[in-house]
């Protein structure tokens, strides 16, 4: 079944590249976020296309994480946080009252800045999501999901002998890949990553980056990064945020070579940030 999905999504990715008419996955219109009284995002408009890797860059505190959290409504969990505007997933308003956040988050997964494996075994960490959503009907099916997710996250060979050991015992890089595996175990359509490599050493970072590139064949990935080289290496398009505004979004190569906004240029060339 998963092979079907993969093949299908590969096909669609190819189609998207071939046709040069990328298919719209998510879109945000005039999104504003308030923490209590203060406005942290001042009206963001952004389109996200299927099977692309989109990077968010910008100085810290400019609202990248805030916007990312809007995309799967993680902001709901913050007291006093209010979101206005419209965000669509496959043409559907995700802030619609009738929409089930549980379902939304199953479709739009998230990987956090600091690896946050549960204090459970490696197996249980991966099986957690599929169990919640009832994705596996038998133990065998669950085993298969766990193995497949770990394999896709490039972690299987490293942990296959110690699935019953605590996930917190892994190294930082392994933990982060475990968290990615955990996210893909529920087969989301979009994966949001908030600076997934900022707590990792260069080697672990390289592994995760490679993983992201691979995953982009089947998933839409939005990644916040502090590291501009990283954005350049892995993303197809890049969005630059500044002081709560989305300054510009374009092909990564264009952003890094000929940005149209002077603020972007200043940031890229390291004049601030």
């Amino acid at each position: 079944m998963e092979n079907d999905v993969m093949r299908a999504s590969l096909a669609s990715a190819e189609a998207a590249q071939n046709n040069h008419t990328p298919e719209l996955k998510m879109s945000a219109r005039d999104v504003r976020v308030f923490y209590g009284e203060s406005e942290a995002l001042h009206g963001v408009d952004l389109d996200i296309y299927a099977n692309e890797v989109l990077a968010f860059i910008g100085p810290s505190g400019c609202g990248k994480s805030t916007f990312l959290r809007c995309l799967n409504r993680m902001n709901d969990t913050i007291d006093g946080c209010r979101v206005t505007g419209r965000i669509e997933l496959d043409g559907e308003d995700i802030y619609d009252r009738r929409l089930d956040v549980v379902l939304l988050r199953a479709r739009v997964g998230m990987v956090f800045q600091k690896p946050n494996p549960f204090p459970k075994s490696i197996y249980e960490n991966i099986a957690y999501g599929p169990r919640l959503h009832g994705l596996a009907e038998s133990r065998a099916e669950l085993d298969e999901i766990v193995q497949r997710s770990l394999t896709r996250a490039g972690l299987w060979d490293e942990v296959k002998d110690r699935l019953d050991q605590p996930g917190t015992g892994l190294s930082g890089g392994q933990q982060q890949r475990l968290c990615i595996a955990r996210a893909i175990a529920v087969s989301p359509e979009v994966i949001l990553m908030d600076e997934p490599c900022s707590a990792l050493d260069p080697i672990a970072t390289a592994k995760v980056e490679q993983l992201i590139t691979e995953l982009s064949e089947s998933y839409t990935i939005v990644i916040v990064t502090h590291n501009m080289q990283q954005a350049a290496r892995i993303s197809k398009r890049t969005a630059f945020f500044h002081l709560g505004n989305l300054v510009e979004v374009d092909e990564t190569t264009k952003i890094f070579t000929t940005p149209s906004d002077s603020r972007t240029e200043d940031y890229i060339t390291g004049r601030f940030g």
């Binding site: 969990t77 939304l104 199953a106 946050n116 549960f118 999501g129 955990r182 529920v186």
Partner: peptide, 21 residues
């Protein structure tokens, strides 16, 4: 830590599932 809760909620767990599990 909140990160633990976020990890679970981000996977689509409900609040009570997050608390219990």
């Amino acid at each position: 830590p909140k990160a633990m809760r976020d990890g679970s909620l981000g996977l689509g767990a409900t609040k009570s599932e997050t608390i219990r599990k």
